[in-house]
């Protein structure tokens, strides 16, 4: 990875986000750290409620009440984003970081034409543009994301676009100010597989052309394998495994990652094997367990797992995992029972 040579684009240190609900504090993100290099694609996988979207929303400052960042830092090119004033945040958002959302229909304004929304994004951030030049640039952007007949399409409303087209328009909107970081929150989940394939190809292509870093949030392991360089697996507010895609997919270290991989049916399996599911259900974040969050569902659960949280340790080059099993392998004593 490049990130060692250059400074990292984004550094997150011990980020904690909580939701203060009437029934108690929900620690949606509970102390995660990672860094993202220039020109790198990081995948974040996890089930619903694992905190993957919340973490991304806090980077771009879109957390909604009752959510609050309660600890940690988010450094973007060395500056702590959490210290920004609202005005600085406005400049930061869209210009340096932008986001693509899951459902393009609810994220585009139905009463403005697609062109208007593109031009607005551009003129908000770059005062140098005249309306005419901005329109030209918007048409270029639409062409870049593969919308045919862009000159006509630009004056249409979102409802005149199909699902895949809308997602393309969203991508155009996100990239029009040439941000350094793009956060994609389940951008293909609402789409059909053939359209998903088109959008993934487009994103790979644009990433190469524009050298944008991407944080790609998804629950689909196949999509991660396709597009990401590195991957973080989240469970109940923690990153439990992180590493290069190849390491994580071919040599998964955490029982949860292994469980996810073995419970997914694969197109390339030769014999029909029974799926190995992860038993139980995700934990209740209002009453998290004392020890490892995955402990209650883990096949290899030991005594210590229920008592203490496991530390996040390096298990291979650039490959991290949080599990007590790694200590068992090293020392081979205590906690072998149960």
């Amino acid at each position: 990875m490049e990130m060692d040579e250059k400074k990292a684009l984004l550094e997150i240190e011990d980020l904690k986000v909580s939701f203060f609900t009437p029934v108690g504090e929900v620690k949606a993100v509970n102390g995660i750290s990672y860094s993202l290099g220039y020109n790198e694609v990081m995948g974040i996988v996890g089930e619903s409620g694992s905190g993957k979207s919340v973490e991304a929303y806090s980077i771009i400052g879109l957390l909604q009440n009752p959510g609050k960042v309660v600890g940690g830092t988010i450094k973007f090119e060395g500056e702590n984003v959490l210290d920004y004033t609202e005005e600085q945040m406005r400049q930061f958002r869209g210009n340096k970081v932008s986001m693509i959302f899951q459902n393009p229909m609810t994220c585009l304004n139905p009463v403005y034409t697609v062109g208007n929304q593109l031009i607005e994004a551009l003129m908000c951030h770059d005062k140098g543009y005249t309306r005419k030049a901005a329109r030209k640039r918007a048409i270029e952007m639409l062409e870049l994301v593969g919308i045919n007949n862009a000159e006509k399409r630009i004056d249409q409303y979102p409802h005149e676009f199909s699902g895949g087209m809308r997602q393309r328009a969203m991508i155009a909107m996100a990239l029009i100010c040439e941000p350094k970081l793009l956060i994609a929150d389940e951008p293909t989940t609402a789409l059909d597989v053939t359209i998903q394939a088109q959008i993934l190809e487009l994103m790979k292509d644009l990433q190469k052309k524009k050298n944008t870093s991407i944080i790609f949030i998804t629950h689909n392991l196949g999509v991660v394998a396709e597009i990401c360089d590195r991957v973080s697996v989240m469970y109940a507010g923690h990153i439990i495994e992180q590493g290069d895609v190849d390491d994580v997919f071919y040599n998964p270290q955490h029982p949860y990652t292994r469980g996810l991989l073995s419970s997914t049916p694969r197109m390339d399996e030769v014999t029909k094997e029974r799926l190995v599911p992860i038993e139980g259900t995700p934990i209740d974040l209002l009453n998290p367990p004392k020890g490892c969050n995955f402990g209650p569902r883990c096949k290899d659960c030991m005594k210590i797992c229920l008592r203490e949280k496991p530390p996040f340790v390096e298990v291979g080059e650039g490959h991290y995992s949080a599990c007590w099993l790694h200590f068992k392998k090293q020392s081979g004593k205590e906690d072998a029972e149960a």
């Binding site: 053939t194 394939a197 088109q198 196949g222 394998a225 190849d246 997914t264 197109m267």
Partner: peptide
Amino acid sequence: LLSAVPLPDPIKSRSRQRILL
């Protein structure tokens, strides 16, 4: 349709040819 299905296997998914519609 089959070539569009993402494979949870980084090396295979990098090497395969996709038919895009």
